[in-house]
Each structure stands twice: as structure tokens, then as C-alpha cells.
Design a protein around this nucleic acid. Structure first.
Lengths: 185, 185
DNA sequence: ATTATCTATAGATCTATAGATAATGC
DNA sequence: ATTATCTATAGATCTATAGATAATGC
């Protein structure tokens, strides 16, 4: 059982470091140190750095975006709430990790297609988008990617500039408007 | 004058490769090859990889977002148009480069603060945001970051799924609504 | 003479493997 | 006996520097 635990430690460490620093900037040694074992252990368990990357692939946004409260909130607000509350709880942000990991994935094209499909499938279900082209879903995904990157990578809309609930109301309204088709050209 | 030209080649190559692959994954050798000179030349000219990075810092979004046509368009549409048309023209996208470069910057905290200030200054001027907290500006920046990352990194909203002018109309309407304060909670 | 540029190489990583040792299960 | 884990190290980079050579300006 210590075996399983080490494996979990390695995967958790890899997930965190890949997300923080990207693929190339993260070394097997860094992962091993954070996981509390030797680099050789990591290699023996995972086979290669690329396989470690695959095995540590982050929880995708669609899976992470399962709100635990405010279940009666409209989906646009709920999706925004998840992102804002993960920031406030200092949790890792899959919406930020995905683009970074796609960018540096050992196999970029397939990582991109894979992520796109998952985003679209997961979010269209959540917002009840039944259209064939899934354009509303894709615009919602864009808006959420921007919020996550903005608050987590660029440091926009910090808590001391706007209260989190107020942010959820205001950016949530934007996302909900896309869902409702309320903003017309 | 061949000296100046080599320097420009190096900076252009660095800008492109840093944007495509990030800081760590880009090597001096790669930059030199693309610039058509030796790695030693790059080092002698720039001093170090970190200084090369600084010297090659991309045109910031605010500077790039100077539209050449449709000058009478409302700013929300104009900002979206620039991003969509850069994709269609296969040009590099500063809105995508910035988050990537911030993430892997040799000095992350200052890169972040620097980028944030420039975004806010540049975009608030373009959309005429005179508020003290610059909240509308920050939400617009988030929405634009998401559009750029979505279409360039994740491959959302491709031309064969939605006509570019239609995309500009629809996402432009979202951005313009933020500017107008038209979406209320 | 000075500036631009190259070759060669030192020194520091990094991934990956080989082989040793310690812990566990039978 | 088998599984988990480590030490040691090979081989391949990567950044950076030293010193040589070619081109340019006086």
C-alpha cells in the first residue's frame, strides 16, 4: 500500500508542477523531490517523462466544474462561481492548466483536439446547449478560459478590487447572457 | 548594417519561438538556427537567455490592437476583429503570448504586474473606461484573453464552423455589452 | 583597429538505465 | 522470491565563455 501511495504522490506532484511550470521546465528530479522519492523511482514507475505527463493529465474543466452548493443558480453563474471559488481557496485551476499543457504537450495536435472535444461535451451538457454547431458552448468556453487566465495568470480582478460575490454576479451575468442568447449583434 | 539586421533576425526568431514553445523549451540554438547565425553570436549580442527574453518581449496587446479598418466600429467589435483577423492572417497573437510568457518568465511576479498594468492602461483608453476601479476594462481583458486562447490554443470556433464576420458580430456583441454595462446581474 | 561572427569546449543540467539493497509476502 | 526503492552513471543536451578568423572602417 506504500506502493500505491508513492504513485499517488508522484502523480499529484507532477500534476502540480506541470501546471505551475509547464512540461519542459518541470524536471523529473523536481517531481521526485516533491513526491519524496528518487528520480529513478519516478522513471521506473512511469517509464518516461512523456508517459508521466499523460498519466498526470489534470482533471479536465468539465469534471472539475461540479459545484457543491448554490445548486439552483443558473449555469452561467455557477460556472463562474467554481472558478472564482477555486482561486479564493487557492486550489489548482484546470481552466488555466489546459491551455498551458496543450501548448507544451509532447503531442500537441492530439492534445488540442482532445481538450476541445472534452470542453465542448462537458460544458454543452452543463448549459443545455442542444444546437448542432455548439456555438454558444464554444463562446462560453472562451469566456471561462479568459476569466480563469485573467484572474490566475495575470492577476486581474483581485479580491481587494472586487468582492468575489460581486465578481460572480457581474461576470456570471456575461456568461449567462451568452447562454441565453441575450446579447445580439 | 548587416549587424543591425542580424540583431533583428535574432529578436524576431526569439519572439516567435518563445511564443510558440515557451521560455524553457526554446533553446539558444533554436533561435540562432532560425535567425541564421551561431548560438555564440546570440549570446554575445544578448548577454544571456534571460536578457534575450526581455529584449524580445512581444508587442503588447494594447499596442497590437490598433485596427486598420472599420474605424467607425464600436470598440468591443473592433477589439474582437483584431484578434479574429490575426488568426485568419496567421499572424502571431500577443493575447496568447502574454499569459504563456508570464507563466514562464524568469521573474514571474514582475512580469505579471507589468502585463496587468499595460493591459489595463491600453484597453481602458480604447474603450473609454473612466471608472476608478477599471472593472469594466478588466472584464473586457478577461473576455479577450479567452477568445484569443480559445481560438488559437484550443482551436475553438474555427472558420469552418463559424464565418469570421459572424464570430466578430457575436463575440463582439458580448464584449461591447460588457463595455456598455448592458449585462446586469 | 574595430566590429561581426565562428569553432571549440567547459561545466552544468537532464533523462534514462543498470545494478545494488532493503522491505514484503509466501 | 518478489516488489519497492535507491545509488551511480552514461549519454545527450544546454548555456555560456574563450579565443580564432573574417569583414569593415579609418
Amino acid at each position: 500500500m506504500s506502493g500505491t501511495s508513492t504513485r499517488d504522490n508522484v502523480l499529484a506532484a507532477a500534476r502540480r508542477l506541470f501546471a505551475e511550470r509547464g512540461y519542459t521546465a518541470t524536471t523529473i528530479k523536481d517531481v521526485a523531490e516533491l513526491a519524496g522519492c528518487s528520480p529513478a523511482m519516478v522513471m521506473k514507475m512511469m517509464g518516461s517523462k512523456a508517459e508521466l505527463y499523460k498519466a498526470a493529465a489534470p482533471t479536465l474543466p468539465s469534471a472539475a466544474d461540479d459545484p457543491h452548493f448554490h445548486e439552483d443558480e443558473a449555469p452561467g453563474y455557477r460556472l463562474v462561481r467554481n472558478i472564482v471559488q477555486r482561486r479564493d481557496g487557492d486550489e489548482s485551476e484546470p481552466w488555466v492548466m489546459m491551455p498551458l499543457l496543450i501548448h507544451e504537450a509532447p503531442d500537441r495536435a492530439s492534445a488540442e483536439a482532445d481538450a476541445r472535444d472534452r470542453y465542448i461535451r462537458g460544458i454543452s451538457a452543463k448549459i443545455g446547449d442542444t444546437s448542432a454547431d455548439k456555438l454558444p458552448t464554444q463562446m462560453v468556453v472562451a469566456a471561462l478560459l479568459g476569466l480563469a487566465g485573467g484572474i490566475r495568470t495575470v492577476g486581474l480582478l483581485p479580491t481587494d478590487a472586487i468582492d468575489s460575490e460581486e465578481l460572480i454576479r457581474r461576470y456570471g451575468a456575461v456568461v449567462q447572457a451568452i447562454i441565453d442568447g441575450a446579447v445580439a449583434p
